[in-house]
Design a protein around this nucleic acid. Structure first.
Ligand SMILES: [Mn+2]
Ligand SMILES: [Mn+2]
Ligand SMILES: [Mn+2]
Ligand SMILES: [Mn+2]
Lengths: 243, 243
DNA sequence: AAATATTTTTAGATTAACCTAAAAATAATA
DNA sequence: TATTATTTTTAGGTTAATCTAAAAATATTT
């Protein structure tokens, strides 16, 4: 609305000293930074390609090129044509703040509004763009400053640091070993709905009873009670804290 | 993003039967409907003028004309050039749903996150555009289905009806009469901050002690304790439920 | 009723964020 | 290394939502 004028005004006399004071980006720009964050920092890759970003965001590669040029002009990313892209400190700050908001809202939706963990992602995609530092801080406080979201993903703290843990895929456990489900390798809705149906969630205790080398599936004991079979695909997706 | 294609597709074969099924508007379009709602239904006027809408939204009149044509094409408003505008049933439904969301979020921000009543409007302006019926319903439930927001304004119910009450401006009271502050005629931040400073809010009991006809100010007793002077402007802004 | 003022609309531009198709650069393969 | 395939960028276009300036319609005042 008036971002345009503000920018022109700043631009006209002194771009570099003021531009960083309170950069305010569109939801779209924020989403690009988040995608780059996911493809580099969270995936522990040095840089993200144009095509990877396009795929992540479900848009055309040409649109990505366009936006990379603009984010680069705003000093938010390192970008050299044909060479891929990664975040500068200023871009990382915005991306982690966005991830923080996303995961705090997911926590709110599950813990307070009693949504299922498979129902909250899309809503949080919208809530994360609501712009108010005070709001995030009060929400964080209200929720008891949680460190992990309903999917077990770390919630970046206000200072930008990100909580970590040592997790092991269920598929790596030997017969007799056990752990508490603490995270997921990836979170397709289909997996989350399946786990909800068979009563497995964050906090569930899982013990390996038997390994079937024919299809790499396993028999497990859930919460020291029920026994069931889990496929290789599932056991590779479940990340446990070993007990 | 793909709204465009969806629309074109629908448009190409059967506009009138399908277009209403699940109309999904941009935040901007929603804001126009809300402005029209405020200027007509809430102000009990038959129609809103182009200039009034422009002023309400702080944009140029030419932009309004443009949008009115589009909203009219979508069958959301009645619009005849030069004749002003009012909502059709479909537009009113969207507008009241938006107001409902706005006021529920304001209630959440004040009651749960402990924001001051003068701090929540701008944040709610953003939150109201988050699109999820399930979210509004659960939020409503979580908050205990409140009927009025932190400013005393009615929260439209899920069915579109709007709670009402009989309120009287403090300025209309005679010496000795009293009431409970229940709403405001209008809500500039300056008024809300002032009232917060002098410890008057929704629920405060106010009794008229003396009327000063020189400047139409009055002496009042607050919550049967403190005495203070209120200007004409303030006494006209405070709406009471008579006790 | 004519003249003047105000309101509203039209005309023509701009910007962000997308698109497709074609060109250019880089990577993989023969 | 030359050819082919893939990736990325450029070129040119579209749409929504804004703007300013000018024209047209409506309302008010002489
Ligand atoms: Mn998510
Ligand atoms: Mn999550
Ligand atoms: Mn408000
Ligand atoms: Mn309010």
């Amino acid at each position: 609305m008036h971002q345009k004028y503000e920018f022109k005004m700043i631009h006209s006399f002194k771009i570099h000293s003021l531009i960083h004071y309170k950069m305010h980006l569109s939801p779209t720009e924020e989403n690009y930074l988040k995608a780059i964050f996911k493809l580099t920092e969270e995936a522990e890759k040095a840089s993200a390609t144009t095509n990877a970003i396009a795929a992540e965001m479900s848009i055309a590669a040409a649109s990505v090129t366009d936006m990379l040029r603009r984010l680069s002009e705003k000093e938010l990313i390192h970008y050299e044509k044909y060479k891929g892209v990664h975040l500068k400190a200023s871009g990382r700050k915005i991306a982690t703040a966005l991830v923080r908001k996303h995961r705090l809202w997911e926590y709110f939706l599950v813990e307070k509004l009693k949504f299922g963990w498979d129902e909250v992602h899309d809503i949080a995609e919208e809530l994360e763009h609501v712009r108010s530092d005070e709001l995030v801080n009060r929400l964080d406080e209200y929720l008891g400053k949680p460190n992990f979201d309903p999917h077990g993903d770390p919630i970046p703290r206000a200072d930008g640091t990100i909580p970590t843990r040592q997790l092991t895929p269920l598929s790596a456990l030997k017969v007799g070993e056990s752990g508490i489900l603490t995270g997921l390798q990836n979170h397709p809705d289909s997996l989350m709905r399946y786990l909800r149906k068979i009563n497995i969630g964050i906090g569930t205790k899982i013990q390996v009873l038997e390994l079937h080398d024919f299809d790499e599936s396993m028999s497990v004991k859930i919460n020291d009670e029920k026994e069931m079979e889990l496929s290789e695909k599932v056991s590779k997706s479940l990340l446990l804290k070993i007990t």
